[in-house]
Design a protein around this nucleic acid. Structure first.
Length: 272
DNA sequence: CGTTAGCCCTGCTGGC
DNA sequence: TGCCAGCAGGGCTAAC
């Protein structure tokens, strides 16, 4: 499932291919993609525009357009963005096809149909992005900032670091892996963490995300990069999706539980 | 205000 | 072997 490292992988691959190109067609094959807006409305604002840059905020991909607007895509659970060609288009679960002025084709596939596409006008953008928290790889996300986020919070640390309004981009995989590396039990109240634990967690979040980006993200189910290749980080999972297997540090059995409504994997001995 | 439960959706898994 | 309930989960909304 695309989280920050997967979306960043896609952004890096796609940026040189789309930058400076004009959008020629914007064909939505599944009207649900643009809800609650009409597909025609999103198409009207994107067709004819030049893509001046490709950015990322949290798990959102932003196509910056030459009118100051932004095309925003979110892959949610099973979305895939594939760089393709007319003779190679895969029709399965195809939701959106963007054609560029140099013949480039970008296909949005999404089995579970949770993915979204939206257009933001220049004036709407600022307010739209205001609801998101710190970028975990930004220098401003440090132990002091994480300490402030945790302070006084009774809710478990795992849903706290997954709350996009506090920190943008961490999902279930990287929350589990970062908490294991920091030796913190995911159900601990955020406000109860010791200063050293906050420091450790901050640095493990950054390391985990950076390593995952290097390996082009994690492919568990359907995730693939823009050329359809799987990521490699799932091979290095220490706890996530490893229920019943031995902890790489202490050999104890990895357990699975539910925290904040999400499947959560942890080592009962290494994470206290 | 902070927190949680339910909804959306479809392919796969596990139990009988 | 075949069937089907249940599970997976990001982000939004409603409810407490």
């Amino acid at each position: 499932m695309p989280e920050l490292p997967e979306v960043e992988t896609i952004r890096r691959q796609l940026a040189p291919l789309v930058k400076g190109r004009r959008i020629v067609t914007f064909d939505v094959l599944d009207r649900r993609l643009t809800e609650p807006r009409a597909t025609e409305e999103v198409g009207k604002h994107t067709v004819g525009k030049v893509i001046t840059g490709l950015g990322r905020r949290g798990k959102y991909l932003r196509f910056e357009l030459d009118d100051g607007g932004t095309l925003v895509l979110h892959l949610r659970m099973t979305g895939r963005l594939i760089w393709t060609s007319p003779e190679k288009i895969d029709e399965e679960h195809l939701r959106l096809l963007i054609r560029l002025d140099d013949g480039g084709l970008l296909a949005f596939h999404d089995m579970r149909r949770f993915g979204t596409a939206a257009y933001l006008g220049q004036s709407e953008a600022e307010e739209y992005w205001r609801r998101f928290g710190l970028e975990p790889l930004d220098r401003r996300f440090n132990s002091t900032a994480l300490g402030k986020i945790c302070q006084g919070r009774k809710r478990p640390i795992k849903p706290t670091i997954m709350d996009q309004a506090l920190i943008a981009g961490i999902g279930n995989i990287y929350a589990d892996e970062s908490l294991f590396r920091a030796g913190i039990n995911p159900v601990r109240a955020a406000g109860d963490l010791e200063h050293e634990e906050v420091t450790a967690l901050c640095s493990e979040i950054k390391d985990t995300l950076r390593e995952a980006i290097k390996l082009h993200g994690s492919s568990i189910d359907t995730y693939a990069d823009t050329s359809g290749q799987r990521g490699g980080f799932q091979e290095t999972f220490r706890v996530h999706r490893r229920e019943g297997m031995p902890c790489p540090q202490c050999d104890s059995t990895i357990l699975k539980t539910k925290v904040g409504g999400r499947g959560t994997y942890f080592c009962p001995d290494c994470q206290s």
